[in-house]
């Protein structure tokens, strides 16, 4: 654990909670892409299946459970509790155009051809593009609310901090995960937009 990774994780957590609180407090999910949130729930679910197979640390386990829980809570608020405020007409990105190629890529390029590892790879690739429905929605409606901008900023910051984390880990631990790094760079570039 280094300072970049910790602040990256906390920034990620802040983004998730900012979005959840915004929807809860305003009783509205206007301007939020439900499709992006479903993709993030899918990302966390497929990535954290190792909760069932390996224990890394209490921190690691708790954060995973919190991320999964919050992402499902967000999806629930958008599609169930406050679905009357969900702007489905503007959330028209075709997610199959992301999920299918990303699934194919995960099968082709991975560290190990095993179910858990392919799902982990799938989640890494999917996370890098999961925000596209949200960006697409903003481009259609023309304007993002301030709080949505804060959410996007925290998510982008999280990825940028993880890049510094990987540079740190490469120098001090010799750690190098090509799949995570390439996907992380793609993701960071998308958020710069």
């Amino acid at each position: 654990m280094n300072v970049f990774r910790l602040t990256g994780d906390l920034s990620h957590l802040a983004a998730i909670i900012i979005l959840l609180l915004k929807i809860w407090k305003t009783r509205s999910c206007a301007g939020i892409s439900g499709k992006s949130q479903i993709l993030f729930a899918l990302v966390f679910t497929t990535r954290y299946l190792d909760l069932l197979t390996s224990f890394i640390s209490l921190y690691n386990t708790s954060m995973k459970v919190i991320y999964i829980g919050c992402s499902y809570a967000t999806v629930y608020l958008i599609y169930m509790k406050f679905r009357a405020t969900y702007d489905g007409n503007h959330d028209s990105f075709r997610v199959e155009f992301l999920v299918v190629p990303v699934g194919g890529l995960a099968v082709l390029i991975n560290h190990d051809f095993s179910p858990l590892e392919i799902l982990w790879t799938f989640s890494i690739y999917l996370e890098s593009v999961a925000i596209l429905p949200q960006l697409f929605m903003i481009s259609k409606t023309g304007e993002a609310e301030t709080i949505t901008t804060h959410y996007l900023f925290c998510l982008g910051l999280y990825r940028a901090l993880y890049l510094f984390n990987w540079i740190w880990r490469y120098y001090f631990e010799g750690f190098f995960d090509m799949i995570a790094i390439v996907a992380g760079v793609v993701q960071t570039v998308l958020y710069c937009d």
Partner: peptide
Amino acid sequence: AEGELLHDEL
């Protein structure tokens, strides 16, 4: 498990 990759990041 043995031979399994361990992903320690979130």
